[in-house]
């Protein structure tokens, strides 16, 4: 099971965090800080895996990937395949890339809720839901369409009602 997904920038600012096991906010922040502390002190040419038992309790592993200004971190237990998790990070990033056309940190900052939607289509309650970024894209696009469809309706009614109230 995947325990947490974290995206943070190279300054240690969290950009997306999702914990699949309940943790109080302070604990989450502490973990993010610790993980960042470990990541930024790692050399370039080392493996992408880390023992995370000290951070997340027993039976925890951590895999991370470093893209431009962002760290993508997955934390999971021994029931997941480390190498597959590495590929899953790749799938996630590829999907983001397709969604935002050359994703950069700013896209992630400002499209915070969309990022969650995408993540929810890939990892569901700590389990891998979908591994084909094309499939994910289809669903995400459909959700955006639904959103804007009802939004435009909502917008019209709001303006109209606002106009009437005036």
């Amino acid at each position: 099971m995947i325990k947490a997904v974290m995206v943070m920038n190279t300054q240690g600012k969290p950009r997306l965090t999702k914990f699949y096991e309940f943790l109080p906010v302070e604990k989450q922040q502490g973990i993010i800080r610790t993980v960042f502390g470990v990541l930024c002190s790692r050399a370039e040419n080392v493996s992408n895996f880390m023992e995370a038992d000290s951070i997340f309790g027993p039976d925890s592993r951590l895999v991370y990937k470093h893209y431009a200004t962002l760290y993508f971190v997955f934390v999971f237990d021994s029931s997941e395949n480390e190498l597959a998790m590495l590929d899953l990070i790749q799938v996630f990033v590829e999907t983001l890339d397709k969604c935002f056309r050359n994703v950069c940190e700013l896209d992630i900052v400002f499209n915070y809720s969309k990022l969650h939607t995408i993540l929810d289509e890939i990892i569901f309650g700590g389990q891998v839901l979908e591994t084909s970024s094309a499939e994910v894209m289809k669903v995400v696009e459909e959700i955006s369409r639904q959103e804007s469809a009802s939004n435009s309706i909502g917008l019209v009614t709001k303006t109209v009602s606002g106009w009437r109230n005036r």
Partner: peptide, 9 residues
């Protein structure tokens, strides 16, 4: 939700 991510109550 954004504020939550930054660690505020």
């Amino acid at each position: 939700m954004f504020i939550h991510m930054l660690g505020y109550p």
